[in-house]
Amino acid sequence: MAFKPWNSNKRKMQLVSLIDMVFILLVFFLVTIFIVREPREEMRLAVPTPENKPGRAQILIQLLPSDEFFMIDESAMPVVESVFRDVENRFGYLSVQNLQQKKKEVVFRVLTERFTYPAEQLSHKIQQLLNKANRSPNEKYFVLIRCPDEVPYARVIEVIEKLSQAQYNNVIYGCVGGSLEEIRNCKQIRIVTEIDEKGIKRDNLWITF
């Protein structure tokens, strides 16, 4: 049997496979560099972020842990105005700061007494709003839903589901966390007359935290 003679010159390292692998790694790094670049490019994008402004809405639904909800809309405005007048008449002797505090306390008490409803009435109230929205498709209704930490978020979802049934999709909603206590402890409750860009004058209820 003829064996192949031992040729020491052939026992060299095979660099071809090593070069292949190095090239594959090179390609890998080239590709990943582009992937790394993309998020950096994204970081340079001017993404509009919400401004630190009060939430503006026509209707406020504050969910409460006690199977109740607090809901105010423009119908609260005359109540607040009359309470302010009443407080000014009765406590006019107080300093401006104390008078503001008094107004805030009394308005909060009156509003929570008048506009807090049992949870069973939520559907009815929302249906009333939907009927109103369906009657005027050109109007937009913005609902601010506030949910405290203690209340399961499922209740917010329920409200959203109901609001989504508006025929003309003209009921818009926004959700924030927050409790009724925050409203009670707010800095100020006041009525501000504003003129919008269309020149329409409105009385708005401002609750500043």
Partner: peptide, 13 residues
Amino acid sequence: PGIAGIIITGPKI
């Protein structure tokens, strides 16, 4: 929005 405060839009005057 909504954390700093709430504005309830009132009826047109």
